[in-house]
Computed example of a mutant assay.
Amino acid sequence: MQIEVLPLAPEQMKQKVADETQLGFGRLFTDRMLLVEWTADKGWHNARIKPYEPFMLDPATTVLHYAQEIFEGLKAYKWDDGRIALFRPEMNARRFNQSASRMCMPEVPEELFLDGIDKLVELEKDWIPSAPGTAMYIRPAMIAVDPYLGVKPGDHYYFFVILSPVGAYYAAGFNPVSILVEDKYVRSVAGGTGDAKTGGNYASSLKAGLEAKKKGFDQVLWLDGKERRYIEEVGAMNMFFAYGNHIVTAPLTGSILSGITRESVLRLAIELGCTVEERLIDVDELFADLRNGKVTEAFGSGTAAVVTPVGTLGYKDEALQVGDGGVGAITQKLYDALTGIQTGKLDDRYGWIRIVDAA
C-alpha cells in the first residue's frame, strides 16, 4: 500500500528537549503520526503520514463505550554509526494481529505495519535521542471509530502509530524496584483478554497499583484469577526468578502477555549458561524459597523497561529482600546483552535487528 506523506508546516513543528537525560517516559511526542483506515466495504485504505494532531471523535464512538482497542510498544535506537535500529518488530506485528483477532478487529498486513513504522521513524529520526538509556518509543494502536451504540464489532477502524522520545521507564533507572503480590484484585483469567494487549487489561490494574504505591511499592505482581495462588506477571513486565543459574518464569497459559522481551530473555539466558524453566510458581513456595535464600535474584522484562531488577517482594504483611537487595549478576548480564544488541554495541547473532535508516 502506498503511504502518502502530508506536508508539515513550520508552525506545526515542536521544540525538542535539549537535555535528553530529562526526557522521562511517554510525555513528549514527535511532529508526525501514521494513520490508516479500515472500513467493511474498502478494507485498509488511505494510508498517510500526517502532522500529529488530536482525533475528532463523535461522543457515540464505539471505542469510548465498548473498548474495542489494542496497542503495541517497541523502540527505535540510534546507533553510534548513525543507523537506526528496531528490535524484533516482526514479533510486535504478529502479536498486534493476535490481539486484533481476540478483540474482533481487522488484522493489519505485516508489511503495512512494518513499512509504516519504518517510514514514520525515518521521517522523525532527528527526534531519536542518543544519550545512554534513551530511545524512541513507538506506539502502534487501533481503535473502533463507528458512531454507534450497540454491542457488536465496529465497521470502521483507525490504525495509527505515534512516537515518543523516552528515557528510563522507572524513575530510578536500572536499579532494584519493589513489587507487591496482589491477593485481593484480579486482572485477568484464562479465556479472557489477558494475553491480548488491550487497554482494559491496564485499566483493571490501576486500583491495585495505586494501593501498592500507598504501601511503598513500585508495582503489582498478579496472581492467577482462578485460585489466586500462582504467580503471573507485573503490569508492565513478565517476571523471572533465579535459583542460582536456574531461571524460572510463569508459563503462557492464556492470562498473561506473550512478552517479546520475555522470549528474548529465555533465549539469551541459555546462551549465558543458565537453565530455564516455564512452570506454575506457587506464591507460598516462592516466599518460602525467598526466606531460605534459594531465590537469589528476581527481575522483570518488557519493552519499556527492558530488564528491571527486583530488590524487594511483598505479600500480605511480609516484605522480603531478594538476594542482597541489589542488581544480581544474571540480571546484569541479561540487561547488558539485550541493550548491547539493541544499541549496536554487541553483534546480533539472532537476526533480531531491523535497520531503518543507513547513514
Rank of each mutant, 00 (worst) to 15 (best):
K14W: 06
Q22F: 05
Q22C: 14
L23R: 05
G26Y: 06
R27Q: 15
R32I: 04
R32K: 15
T39G: 09
L57K: 09
L64I: 11
L64F: 10
Q68F: 00
E69C: 05
E72V: 05
W79N: 13
D80I: 09
F87H: 06
E110R: 13
L114F: 08
G116Y: 03
E122I: 13
P140T: 10
A144Y: 01
P153C: 04
D155W: 00
F160G: 06
F160T: 10
V161F: 05
I162W: 01
I162L: 12
V166R: 02
V166E: 04
I179L: 14
V181T: 12
K184E: 09
Y185E: 04
V186R: 01
V189M: 12
K197A: 06
T198S: 09
G200I: 10
A203Y: 03
S204K: 05
A212Q: 03
L223C: 00
E227K: 11
E227D: 15
E232G: 01
V234H: 00
A236G: 09
F240R: 04
F241Q: 09
I256D: 00
A269T: 12
D284F: 10
A288T: 12
D289N: 15
R291S: 15
K294H: 11
K294Y: 03
F299I: 09
A305C: 15
G314Y: 00
A319Q: 08
V356H: 03
